[in-house]
Design a protein around this nucleic acid. Sequence first.
DNA 1: CTATATTTTTACCATCTGGTAAAAAAACTG
DNA 2: CAGTTTTTTTACCAGATGGTAAAAATATAG
Lengths: 232, 232
Amino acid sequence: MKQDQPKAPLSTDDQSSSRRGKKRAGAGEELKRTRLTQKVIVETAAGLFAERGFGATSLNDIADALGVTKVALYYHIKNKEEILRLIYLTVLNMAEEPLRRIVESELDPREKLRQAVMHHISITVNASPAVTVFYREQAHLTGPFAREIVLREKAYQRYFEQIIQEGIARQTFKAGFDSQVITFGVLGMCYWLSHWYKPTGRYSQQQIADMFIDMVEGGLLTPAALAPFAQT
Amino acid sequence: MKQDQPKAPLSTDDQSSSRRGKKRAGAGEELKRTRLTQKVIVETAAGLFAERGFGATSLNDIADALGVTKVALYYHIKNKEEILRLIYLTVLNMAEEPLRRIVESELDPREKLRQAVMHHISITVNASPAVTVFYREQAHLTGPFAREIVLREKAYQRYFEQIIQEGIARQTFKAGFDSQVITFGVLGMCYWLSHWYKPTGRYSQQQIADMFIDMVEGGLLTPAALAPFAQT
DNA sequence: CTATATTTTTACCATCTGGTAAAAAAACTG
DNA sequence: CAGTTTTTTTACCAGATGGTAAAAATATAG
């Protein structure tokens, strides 16, 4: 029902698909056989998972997209879920370190928040397919690994909470806000980017981040609207 | 008549097949055999889709969850995708009307935004499985219906933009913000709720909505942090 | 009660699923 | 070159998949 043409002209990065096994290396010019490796499997799979979902993507789909057979995959990966696990590790490894550095720096909370938001937006937008999968397919992780991911996600989120709390403690941020709720709000704003951001759009990542931060810091209301009876 | 199966009894949950149909309406308490209907199919399917994903949920899974056979489903629905289509219609029908009424009311923009956010949060949280599916499985819609959904989603989002624009025009909201970006931010905050909100949690929907709106309206920064050299 | 329309069943089907076994081919070694 | 390791192939598998045909059970009339 999916794709069953004898020829497969639809692959995103082609020319590896038609050159099947019985190809000898041409003298001199290496045809760049895109050496099958965990990394390219994971990248390709992430693209497909992001597009069609983990459950709706078969190992054959992934193999086809790479121009190899399904079994070739099994030399590099243990099973389908391992691919998913590697996607989760990729994303977390990208995301955690820089945020930790920001939080542990000597910057003031306001600047920390700004940088953390920019970092999060950058992760969300730039590693897009993997991140899409990250947020969507968590239910397909099983066993202890699933729990590990949940813990690391919570730790990530707790870094944001820390920034908010520090800001409240230093009276940079207003008291009365719950750091957890604010964190969820901010992370949600950023996450949602992956649903609509197009690199060709009207605003750059930087500009969007700035607007988000301006809103979160100063709010939407004009001073007049805030204190309608006494504008000083 | 039932046990002519040469194979071992592999059905996950049987016993519903042995006492089919034979049910009497108890006095007063209707035992409600859950008459199989499009509505209950859609509800059950939404739960499963939300849990395991559209692609990873089979029609047998849905039938099992309802205690009927897969083919019984086919009397009520055309195919798997139709179930998904009905989920999308359910969510949109719930969401559109109330928002339209808020936007077209005579309230001031600030109150409109407050109510729109509360409405959106309520939809997101209360129709949860269907909404989860709504945001996750759009890629599995095909044909003209897929386009219809995209259009209605955009229209929904444009209502929010309208509120922001009106607020800017009336100088309730600061100029300089892009209404689309702000809308995406606000919708993202609300959407993200469905990932973490638990009805048993520390805050009620109302309280969370209030914090979100307080943040969006007035910002996080204290007056001192906003104007560090001249606090008046 | 019989006739009709609604609802669900048993019995299929062709194709695909994740996964395995064994071996052939290529790529590195010495 | 031969020997070894890395990589990919052909050939399978048992079970599940979305979907269909035909008939049986049930409910609703008249």
